[in-house]
Computed example of a mutant assay.
Amino acid sequence: MDGVALPRAEGRARQGTALAFLGVLAFSGSLPATVYAMQGVNPWLVAIGRAAVAGAVAVACLKVTKNRLIPPKHEWPAYALISLGVVFGFPVFSGLALAMGASTAHSAVVIALLPAATAVCAVLKAAERPRPLFWVACAAGAIAITAFTLTQHQAKATWPDLLLVGAVISAAIGYTEGGRLSRETPGWQVISRALVFSLPLTVPMATAIAIATPVNPTPQAIAGFAYVSLISMFLGFFPWYAGLAKGGIARAGQTQLTQPLLNLLWAWVLLGERFGPATVVAALAVLVCVAITQRART
């Protein structure tokens, strides 16, 4: 039986990694899209409005598929954490960091700390126990990113960096809770219900901000806002949560270490950003780390 179970478990883990990478690919355009959106929309409206729009789409999807809108009461604490983490926390913190002058490339490398934070949350909340090699590679990636950040600012953390750390912690909590619930409930339903769960806050907040702030709906701003609303906040979570459930939150979550390279590509292609060799070296260092973590089974 063990001879059959082990290949099946490994195959499931590989499927989870592949699905998680599709989610990362979707998320990798979030920072450039946020920059585009903020060219015509207030940063707070970008952060909260995207959740309100995605929530409306989630309601329609759940209605069409005849699934319940509100999760059972015993799951409300988990959905509250998902909402605080990925519906509010990450969009607000990362958006404000970009609005305060953090470049897309720099933000992408700092946010690559997210897999390490997710792994820690997985151990604390989802009873996962990765092998020692996993932790060594995970710590190496975190150290590489920390060293990169400090060398960029004369060994001092700036406000945008602190906001990005807040984004990392928020997302790690939301990812862990969502991945845990996705073991029993399809991932698309988890993110949909989290968005619906947040609608009583996101809709009135987004409406108030839209009334109080000017909006300049340029084509770039509309495109960016549409991306963060439909892809970053909604569709990207479909493969992401499914991947975390199949591959293990700690292991599959490490695929997000590839996101710095993808973000650097989009920053160069879409925004024309220039970055030095230190940025590329840091991104490559974490890419090596993710390859090692994927070899270390949970």
Rank of each mutant, 00 (worst) to 15 (best):
D2K: 10
D2R: 14
G3Y: 10
R8E: 15
R8L: 15
A9R: 12
G16K: 04
T17R: 05
F21G: 00
S30K: 01
M38G: 01
G40D: 10
N42T: 04
P43E: 11
I48H: 00
A56W: 04
A60S: 13
K63S: 14
K66C: 12
L69A: 11
H74Y: 12
P77E: 10
A78R: 11
A78T: 13
Y79I: 02
A80M: 13
L84I: 14
V92E: 01
G95I: 02
L96C: 03
M100C: 05
A102T: 08
A105D: 09
S107K: 02
A108D: 06
A108I: 09
V109R: 02
V109E: 04
V109W: 05
V110M: 11
V110D: 01
L113N: 08
A116G: 15
A117P: 02
T118E: 07
A119R: 03
V120R: 04
A122D: 06
K125M: 15
K125V: 15
P132Y: 09
F134V: 08
F134D: 04
A137H: 02
A139L: 13
G141I: 05
F148G: 01
T151H: 14
T151N: 15
Q152Y: 05
Q152R: 14
H153V: 09
W159A: 14
L162K: 07
L164D: 02
L164C: 05
V165F: 14
A167C: 09
V168R: 01
E177F: 15
E184T: 14
P186A: 11
I191D: 00
I191L: 04
S192R: 01
A194V: 02
S198E: 04
T202V: 04
V203G: 01
V203D: 03
A208W: 15
I209W: 01
A212D: 07
N216L: 10
Q220M: 13
Q220D: 13
Q220L: 13
A221M: 05
A221S: 08
A223N: 04
G224F: 01
M233W: 00
Y241E: 01
G243V: 12
A250E: 07
A250R: 03
T258L: 15
L261V: 14
L261F: 11
V269F: 13
L270W: 15
R274E: 12
P277Q: 08
A278V: 11
T279N: 08
V280W: 11
V281D: 08
V281C: 09
A282W: 07
T293I: 09
